[in-house]
Simulated scan of single mutants.
Amino acid sequence: MFKVTTPQSSEDWQAYYSLRWQVLRAPWGEPRGSEQDDLEQDAEHRFIKNNDGEVLGVARLHFNNHQQAQVRYMAVAEGNRNQHIGSRLLHELEKIAWTQDADELVLFARERALDFYKRHGYELKEKAHLAYDDVQHWKMVKQKPSEPGWFRHPNWTQVLQNTWRESIPISDAMGIKVESYTDWQFTTRADLDANLNLHNTMFAGSIYSLATLTGWGATYLALKEAGLEGNIVLADANIKYLKPLNNDPRGSVELAGCKGKLADLEDSGKASYHVPVNVYDGDVLVAEFEGHFIVKK
Rank of each mutant, 00 (worst) to 15 (best):
L228F: 13
A235I: 13
F203I: 07
T188V: 00
N197Q: 12
D248A: 08
Y181N: 06
E225D: 14
A237E: 14
K243R: 15
G230N: 10
P249M: 10
P145N: 08
L196G: 10
S167H: 06
A222K: 06
D172R: 07
Y241S: 03
P145L: 02
N200P: 01
Q185E: 13
H199I: 08
F203E: 03
G230L: 06
A226L: 03
R165Y: 05
F203D: 02
N155A: 15
E166P: 00
V178P: 01
K240L: 14
D191H: 08
V178H: 02
P244N: 10
T212M: 10
A237R: 09
D183N: 03
T214I: 10
G205L: 11
I176Y: 00
K243S: 08
L221D: 04
L198R: 15
E229P: 02
G230Q: 10
I168G: 00
I176T: 01
Y220A: 11
I168E: 00
P249L: 09
L213T: 06
W216L: 05
L196I: 07
K240T: 15
M202I: 03
I168A: 00
A222F: 04
F186L: 07
T219Y: 12
A173Y: 11
K177M: 08
A218I: 05
D236P: 12
K224V: 05
T188Q: 00
D248H: 15
W184M: 02
M174W: 01
L213H: 10
R165T: 07
G215E: 08
N200V: 07
L228D: 08
A237S: 15
N246Y: 13
Q161D: 02
T163W: 12
N162S: 09
D183M: 00
A226M: 07
G175T: 03
G175Q: 01
N195S: 10
P244F: 11
S180D: 07
E254N: 14
M174I: 03
W216M: 04
N200T: 06
K243M: 06
E229F: 11
S252D: 13
F151D: 02
T214D: 07
V233P: 01
D236I: 09
A222T: 04
Y220H: 12
I239R: 13
V253T: 09
Y241M: 12
L228V: 03
G215W: 06
E229M: 12
N195D: 13
I176N: 00
K240E: 15
P154S: 09
M202F: 09
W164Y: 04
A204W: 04
L255I: 02
E147F: 11
T157Q: 05
S252Y: 04
Y220S: 06
S252H: 10
M174T: 01
V233C: 05
D236R: 15
L160P: 01
I207T: 13
T157H: 02
G149W: 03
D193T: 03
E229L: 08
L192N: 02
T212P: 00
N197A: 13
Y181E: 07
Q158F: 01
G205M: 12
L192Q: 06
F151H: 11
I232Y: 06
